[in-house]
Design a binder for these strands. Structure first.
Length: 645
DNA sequence: TCGGTTGCCTAGGCTCGCAT
DNA sequence: ATGCGAGCCTAGGCAACCGA
């Protein structure tokens, strides 16, 4: 804002800072916007600043100057008697001391001097706020002057500005002390609360210990057995009951385990299990119980393996001459099909550990020779936490195995080799056996080789391979299919058994609707609903046992006599070629790829239909399938015991 | 501390309506 | 007739809050 020239006629212009004009009589010549800000900051009379300004102007509390400026005398008191070299913080503090309730127009002449204000800080100076030293404006001039004069008499040699600065400094110190005091007070209250809580915890713990001790004492005396009885057929209802504590509020630990077992042994959602059990238990309680039970099992496994390590270390310390420690870890690991969770596979690991920290030598115990003394071993079977498969390679498999073993506290070959363990003192030996049971996937086979390489230089770690029996059934089926194909070739057949079964099942799935209708036409509606309504099962390569479902269905619906007439009728019809691009019909899709795929599919299905009809007419195909069905029953029983009818 | 409630979110499956 | 997307449902996870 430019300095109004007319203002110089009544006051002497001494400076222009940040658009504000400072006059030698201690007033500001400021613009309307600044004046409104001043009114807003000092809260003159309350109400909207605009209305306040209008009222003040009407009462000549501000003087309007030519050029759109106003003369505001709010700084008169300060400027009268002081040297005017105060910095902005000082100025703000002074204003706080002098927060006026009303502005009194003053006619007093001003003293000379100039005021310097930090322009940047000035614009963001804090708004006036009431302080402990707040005074009404009516008394401000007289009281402040009297107070300062009194101080000057006491503190001789100080200027008024110096005294004021001292007051401001003391104010700041007081504020800081108050703040620190509040903090300490709060901390004190918190600590008192914490002490009370700890005392309460201590008291309760002591009570619980007393109660448990009182409970345990008579039982151990009277029976001499463990406090917990194992679950048997007779007491299963009692042990698995859902019970609550005496206030009927909290579930007992046994009940929580029971809930989680019931949930895991059933296919009932958490939200519905309460309804099934006729207990008003929330789904969250059941979910929490599952987590707690799982955590307890994991904790037990970790505790067991730590105990094992401790036992081995104790034996090492004792330096028992000629003793042998043996640990056997049987690891079974397999992954699910892909995309089971977040587009990824999941892998599970079953671990069976048995160990004996001090196996007697054959010289010590004559009965030991020739047989293991398994009663000296302590064992545990546990399941590691399920992990998602991020890397399907052998290295990824090793990483997952290592991670899952760590999760149950069992050292892996890797961790043993890395830790340089097996450095037992002279006289004591600890042997570790790792039995790795997996499928015959290429990554698993390679991973097993990696494990063997890892421990090849360590004679105290033995790594053994084993094949999973369930996967073995698939491998046996595969081998029998190969043998069957060789025999078929010798009998002049150009089709193979698995591929012909897969082709026929795909064809039957493709024509399922027509197949059902034709079956109903030929064999009646009742037979159609019973035998032909369900979708034909699929053959899946790799899951070789899947063909048993197909051959069982083939003979379950009546074999060649029932199936062939229907198939012949359905497959003799020309396939629907209405969508083939060779026809001159308009094609909706503009996607060339999908057109190509459609053509390819139609072509393939045409070939499959011909092949299906061909093998269905061949008596040998039915005989081979029947042989497979009969011979496979045992394998399926091994592989998936619940599936066999 | 425990158990219940509520709200918000994700994933997957299914149905239905609409456009082609 | 078919493909596609919106919407709904189910199952479940997580966090915050509340009351006893």
């Amino acid at each position: 804002m430019a300095a109004p020239q007319s203002a110089m006629s009544t006051s002497t212009l001494v400076g222009v800072l940040q658009g504000r004009v400072f006059l030698s009589n201690g007033v500001l010549a400021i613009g309307r916007a600044d004046l409104l800000e001043v009114i807003g900051r000092f809260g003159f009379r309350g109400g909207a600043p605009e209305r306040t300004l209008d009222r003040c102007l009407a009462r000549s509390m501000f003087m309007r100057l030519p050029g759109g400026s106003y003369e505001a005398r709010i700084v008169k008191v300060v400027l009268q008697d002081f040297d005017l070299s105060m910095q902005t913080p000082t100025w703000d503090a002074v204003v706080r001391h002098l927060r006026p309730r009303a502005l009194q127009p003053s006619t007093s002449t001003a003293s000379s001097g100039s005021m310097q204000i930090d322009s940047e800080a000035s614009s963001s100076a804090p708004a006036a706020r009431p302080l402990s030293r707040k005074r009404p404006f009516e008394e401000d001039e007289e009281q402040l002057s009297e107070e300062l004069q009194r101080y000057q008499t006491t503190y001789v040699g100080f200027t008024k500005t110096g005294l004021l600065n001292e007051l401001i400094r003391k104010d700041a110190e007081l504020e800081a002390c108050k703040h620190a005091h509040d903090n300490l007070k709060k901390k004190h209250v918190d600590l008192q609360k914490k002490v009370r809580l700890l005392q309460e915890q201590k008291r309760r713990s002591a009570q619980t210990i007393q109660k448990l001790a009182a409970k345990a004492k008579p039982k151990t005396k009277s029976t001499g057995k463990s406090r917990r009885e194992p679950i048997t057929v007779e007491n299963v209802d009692q042990r698995m009951a859902i019970q609550r504590t005496k206030h009927n509020r909290y579930l007992t630990v046994e009940s929580r385990i029971s809930l989680s077992l019931r949930r895991n042994c059933s296919n009932v959602a958490c939200a519905d299990l309460g309804l099934v059990l006729l207990d008003d238990v929330s789904r969250w309680t059941i979910a929490r119980s599952e987590v707690q039970t799982g955590a307890a099992l994991m904790g037990h496994a970790i505790s067991f393996h730590r105990g094992m390590d401790q036992d081995f270390q104790d034996q090492c310390k004792e330096q028992a001459s000629g003793t042998l420690g043996v640990a056997i870890h049987c690891i079974s690991q397999d992954a699910t099909n892909g995309s089971i969770w977040q587009k990824r596979k999941l892998v599970a690991l079953l671990l069976h550990t048995a160990y004996c920290s001090n196996l007697p030598s054959s010289e010590d115990d004559s009965s030991f020779a020739g047989s293991w003394k398994w009663d000296l071993f302590t064992s545990l079977e546990c399941i590691a936490d399920v992990q998602p498969v991020a890397d399907g390679t052998a290295a990824g498999s090793i990483g997952l195995t290592h991670k899952m073993l760590q999760s149950v506290g069992c050292p892996s070959i890797w961790s043993l080799v890395e830790a340089g363990q097996q450095k037992a003192p002279q006289g004591h030996t600890t042997l570790r056996f790792y039995v790795l049971t997996t499928d015959r996937g290429p990554n698993e086979v390679l991973a097993k080789k990696y494990w063997m390489v890892l421990c090849r230089d360590n004679p105290k770690i033995v790594c053994l391979h084993a094949d999973c029996n369930e996967h073995l059934a698939h491998l046996i089926t595969l081998q029998s299919l190969k043998t069957c194909d060789n025999l078929l070739k010798k009998h002049g057949r150009d089709w193979k058994l698995f591929s012909s079964l897969a082709t026929s099942s795909n064809t039957l799935r493709d024509v399922s609707k027509a197949f059902f209708q034709e079956w109903c036409n030929q064999h009646g509606d009742r037979s159609g609903v019973e035998l032909a309504r369900r979708l034909w099962p699929k053959c899946i390569g790799g899951r070789w046992n899947s063909i048993y479902e197909v051959v069982c269905r083939m003979f379950g619906v009546g074999g060649q006599a029932m199936l062939l007439p229907v198939l012949a009728k359905v497959l003799s019809k020309t396939p629907d070629s209405s969508k083939l691009p060779e026809n001159n019909k308009p094609v909706h899709s503009v996607d060339e790829l999908s057109v190509d795929q459609m053509k390819e599919y139609q072509k393939k299905m045409g070939t499959w239909r011909v092949n299906t009809l061909k093998v269905a007419n061949d008596k040998l195909w039915w005989i081979a399938a029947d042989c497979l069905r009969i011979s496979g029953a045992t394998l399926v029983q091994f592989s998936a015991p619940g599936q066999q009818d």
